[in-house]
């Protein structure tokens, strides 16, 4: 995997589940929409300055829909091709890799982006594979030859959290030193 997440024990490298992927997509959708809205507002402001009269956009406008679709494709294709993760996926600690575990690469990223709407188009049946599939792959994953894995280690995060607590709450008297979470982190347990 080119991104090189830390190879620790726990969930790192496991197939990501439905909830993490869905929340990541929801975050991405929000980011895409907000950025598109801002860009549209900037274009409207510039157009009103040039033409002298205000420019209004409606959701049913075909041009806006096409622009939004292009922006959507560009956002996902570039993010997956660049480092295998979008902003939402980075936030949730998941990443797109090839079926073998290598970096997704631009070709797989573009194919995945193009067939991604297909999973929606089949009444969402394309996502059932994430729930019941052995490798938790959606339809667009199967077509593009990709899968989604965790790049965040839950156990290491828990130990980091406990280690931070150890700074303020000293270990109980009499407890062996190696039982504290900070020591466990140091020892890589």
């Amino acid at each position: 995997m080119s991104a090189g997440p830390r190879a620790e024990s726990g969930f790192w490298g496991h197939y990501a589940g439905f909830v993490s992927r869905f929340v990541a997509y929801a975050v991405d959708l929000a980011v895409i929409t907000v950025l598109f809205g801002l860009a549209l507002a900037a274009v409207s402001f510039a157009a009103s300055l040039i033409s002298g009269h205000s420019v209004n956009w409606s959701r049913s406008d075909v041009l806006v829909a096409i622009l939004y679709g292009c922006w959507w494709l560009l956002y996902f294709a570039y993010s997956w091709a660049a480092n295998g993760k979008t902003f939402g996926m980075a936030l949730l600690g998941v990443q797109v890799v090839s079926g073998e575990g290598d970096a997704a690469g631009p070709r797989r990223a573009i194919v995945r982006t193009l067939v991604f709407p297909l999973s929606f188009a089949l009444c969402g049946l394309g996502f059932v594979g994430i729930l019941v599939g052995r490798e938790r792959r959606a339809l667009h994953d199967v077509i593009a030859g990709t899968c989604v894995v965790y790049t965040w280690d839950a156990r290491a995060a828990r130990l980091r959290f406990l280690a931070r607590e150890d700074v303020t709450v000293p270990a109980e008297a009499g407890a062996p030193a190696h039982e504290t979470a900070a020591d466990a982190v140091k020892q890589g347990q």
Binding site: G17, V19, S20, L92, R136, Y150, A157, R160
Partner: peptide, 19 residues
């Protein structure tokens, strides 16, 4: 960092539960 870890741990927990 703690907020991110919290969101991730909740999501992973639900993933594990469903799986």
């Amino acid at each position: 960092s703690e907020a991110i870890d919290l969101v991730r741990s909740q999501a992973v927990g639900l993933d594990s539960f469903i799986a």
